[in-house]
Design a protein around this nucleic acid. Sequence first.
DNA 1: TATGAATGAGGGTTCATTCAT
DNA 2: TATGAATGAACCCTCATTCAT
Lengths: 203, 203, 203, 203
Amino acid sequence: MPSTQRSSQSASPARRREILETAARVFAEQGYNATTVRKIADEAGLLAGSLYYHFDSKESMLEEILSGFLDELWAGYDEVLAARLDPKDTLAALVTESFREIDRHRDAVAIYQKEARQLAVQPRFAFLADSQQRFEQVWLETLERGVSAHAFRADLDLRLAYRFLRDTVWVAASWYRPGGGHSPEQIARQYLSMVLDGIAAPG
Amino acid sequence: MPSTQRSSQSASPARRREILETAARVFAEQGYNATTVRKIADEAGLLAGSLYYHFDSKESMLEEILSGFLDELWAGYDEVLAARLDPKDTLAALVTESFREIDRHRDAVAIYQKEARQLAVQPRFAFLADSQQRFEQVWLETLERGVSAHAFRADLDLRLAYRFLRDTVWVAASWYRPGGGHSPEQIARQYLSMVLDGIAAPG
Amino acid sequence: MPSTQRSSQSASPARRREILETAARVFAEQGYNATTVRKIADEAGLLAGSLYYHFDSKESMLEEILSGFLDELWAGYDEVLAARLDPKDTLAALVTESFREIDRHRDAVAIYQKEARQLAVQPRFAFLADSQQRFEQVWLETLERGVSAHAFRADLDLRLAYRFLRDTVWVAASWYRPGGGHSPEQIARQYLSMVLDGIAAPG
Amino acid sequence: MPSTQRSSQSASPARRREILETAARVFAEQGYNATTVRKIADEAGLLAGSLYYHFDSKESMLEEILSGFLDELWAGYDEVLAARLDPKDTLAALVTESFREIDRHRDAVAIYQKEARQLAVQPRFAFLADSQQRFEQVWLETLERGVSAHAFRADLDLRLAYRFLRDTVWVAASWYRPGGGHSPEQIARQYLSMVLDGIAAPG
DNA sequence: TATGAATGAGGGTTCATTCAT
DNA sequence: TATGAATGAACCCTCATTCAT
């Protein structure tokens, strides 16, 4: 009897995880609303009704997918923040860590990108709103510290810059294919180069 | 002389346009799939069935919203391209025009952002795929010309830069609020400043 | 102000009749239930709502079509019966008259064939049941008289023979095309020949 | 091993067959268009939505009813034809077989009679048109052979005779009640007697 | 006479979910 | 653990009908 069981029964966590990954993939491909539980079941090799042995509901699968992703994301971010690097290095580390999470949770990120705004207003998904708030706080603070330290331009509209950075990084999940030649670190390096120095030729 | 006229090209464009704008707003707020025709009808002040006097289907409303937006977008882009500006000014003009379209078609852009990928595979929405392709072509060409002319950095991964630009601009529709202090031109200017010169302090 | 108006207004009986004939044609082609008033209106060159200036309802059109046909049919039959011919000639005259009515009311007969059974149970269409009953009575009587007079075979199951005759004649409406080479009288003659003498070679 | 099985070929043929027979009965009673799936479900003792576990659509029920009937009909006809009887016996055997099918598939025949013409133009129901064509061919050929063999009258308009026979037999489904005193064979015998020798008294 | 816009009831269908086996 | 059958609410859409103009 495992101690940390999320919901429903769970004698074989392997099958459970397998189904959840299938669900994540299909949600990412077709959108949450457009995905039927039957489709998930088909792809996972069981019947629709059988899903309910493993999960309480379609929504609970979604919740588990998103919270699993965010938990790991914040674990990574917290490690970065704990290192107390200077602003520029912090930003670089956050961006790199983000691309690593995109690499590991591509489906979850894609789902997040598409559904988070509408989900966040539901009590059940309040953790999305919480995460967004803390996210904004962390990034804005880093930018502010960077401006103070003359690492970033002083003439920036910081809220705009924050959104610019945030979007820049996360929408990559919509086209990024793991194992496609570029490692997350390589992509991060290129993004950082553009974000920090611009695409215009110097001089 | 009544003849057999389909609802699509019916007269009285006032009510029609009103309903279509209502639909766009609700689609943008709740997502296309999650929006019921009843909800649209409620907000437009008629009964669900009455929508079908003006439109053939829920899907045809979506199509009209998206194609209307893309038509205007391309009208603007074509004007920019016809001016044959140098690469940097072309890019600036395209970005500015994009923010203007976001300003005028905020709902349509938000819908596009969320639904385009899944819609584009349907024959009915093939125009989305066409537009995407031409879009990529126009932007990539501008970037390439800019690199040749030494206006843009030579060390860029152009496909990556293209995506970076594209996403950066269009996701703005998800948070941009018209009449919120910033004009589309102002936002465009700030974005261009970041994109071209980066956010790092010079030197 | 004409004295005999069936229902609704009727300033121009020509248009009315035109619409009714259109309705009959479409009902016959597509079936009553499968026919929409809009289809009728389209074919008649006006809008669906405008039909209601001429008729109370879709059902009232159907009623008028069927009762008009039955009225004429019975006028013809009554004339035949009034002549008090011998059984065989009566039967021949009834068959011939039937084919004449099929010729003149092809659409109505086709509708009747397809819809009468289900309609007859409705109070509004009680006249269909009445007509059927009188129809059966007239034909059965003629057959009985014929058997008594040794004009028809004595070993017939008369109810079966009645149905045989009835069906034989009326289903012709489903394939009979007016103006198609055969006059009603010619068809009647051939049918009578088969019905009376059979298709087997004599001897 | 669930795999993706369409509802059509689902297991448990008992309930399925039961529902299909219910549907056939209601279609026959009320007409296909006038029958709601809710009505079928009510009569079968489940909810409307539950029908879709067993069948893809209302139309697929209709298709299965009609094709099931036609398959058995042709099995019977083919057996008759394989016996290579002389024309008169072939005709008698075909008529008898027809009445047997009417006896076994009364509802399907009634539906066929009422709906076939309009259905046959749809691609899905092309098998109806195919069957009709083959039907005509078989009967006409039998009649022609009979005329050549001097079994049938030489002065017949064969197409007329074919329609006469065809309609005469099949409309019987509209009034024939199984278990009503007459066996299919008895009815066939009487019909054949009328069709072959006529109803007029000999001499 | 006819139109244009709307109504409202109902239709076929989908789908997340339940539960006895 | 999984199945098969069913539920019930909701969905998109159709259509006969109404009515002010």
